[in-house]
Design a protein around this nucleic acid. Structure first.
Lengths: 166, 166
DNA sequence: CGTTCACTGGGCAGGATGTCCAGTGACCTG
DNA sequence: CAGGTCACTGGACATCCTGCCCAGTGAACG
């Protein structure tokens, strides 16, 4: 479950050069190919690395506007609302949060005007009592995981690999 | 900029089987290898596909708690706050939103107790006037892009490739 | 009509992958 | 302390993919 330094270096390497092969990876890490292979397999079956899906930029698809909507849900309507939101392509993400009947969802739209349409579609559903929307203006810290990985790799294990990071 | 059906199918294929090669891809798509190669290159230099970084699960790293914090920032302190938050590994994402001096950030922590530590570290900074935190309980719709890609691929172009999706 | 562009289909050398294997050292356990 | 387990090494092999090149075709456009 916990990752050691070698695992951490593998993840960092993959984050920097995702298309790298196992052989090249083993060379950079200074370990045998089989080791790199095994570690990578383990990281994936562990669920630490969920996959290598393409990271698609909504803006490049024509959806440059991002917003977060806080939704207040009528008691007992949660499941219906979830199902409804799942059908809206512009809903990229949905969380239920503390605060009874509260949800938070990430939306994208083609423009500010289009955002109105998306919001109408999102909140135009019976179980939703109230909605508050915040439009994203800047994204100073894009979704990242590297710092966490580094911390986890240093925190958890005793050793794992002797020499410093590549 | 806009993507056509072939582009859409490429992205869907990559999302389903990220480790697929260009050759196999061209076979599935029913096009020549050079075509698949060229399309993929274009998607990447377009910025539609930003990369293929490993998708790391914070929970599997030992950070199973996710929360969203809304921060109110003192006027003129924005840059300082951004810089401060960027140094906190548990801050996975940061947005500035509408509402003067408002920010929204995504946090992770090792436990609810640990979340307190993280929040303290996050808000323990001068420019932050107020903070409201919502802990994530469920994630009915994990971050996704496929539905948007499908919509974009069908919306934008006339044609792009004759036969239906694989 | 000529040019440009995207796509096809083919070929080639170099390199990577998947898959074995035997040997070694660390660690745990009876 | 002996035996077993486990992770890692270093090497081997056939197969497959990659990057790169090329000639030819068909459609769109000026």
């Amino acid at each position: 479950m916990a990752i050691d330094r070698l695992d951490g270096r593998i993840i960092l390497l993959l984050a920097r050069e995702p298309r790298i092969g196992v052989l090249e990876m083993s060379r950079r890490l200074g370990v045998a190919r089989g080791t790199a292979q095994a570690r990578l397999d383990r990281l994936q079956s562990n669920g630490v690395i969920r996959g290598f899906g393409p990271q698609v930029d909504p803006a490049a698809l024509g959806y440059p506007v991002t917003a977060f909507a806080t939704l207040e849900i009528r008691q007992g309507q949660g499941a219906d609302v979830r199902a409804h939101l799942a059908t809206v392509p512009e809903v990229l993400e949905l969380h239920t949060t503390t605060g009874s009947g509260d949800m938070l969802c990430r939306l994208v739209a083609r423009s500010n005007a289009d955002l109105q349409r998306v919001i109408d579609r999102v909140v135009g559903f019976d179980g939703i009592v109230r909605a508050a929307t915040a439009i994203v203006m800047e994204n100073p810290v894009p979704l990242r995981i590297i710092p966490l990985v580094e911390q986890a790799a240093l925190l958890e294990p005793p050793g794992g690999d002797p020499d410093g990071p590549d």
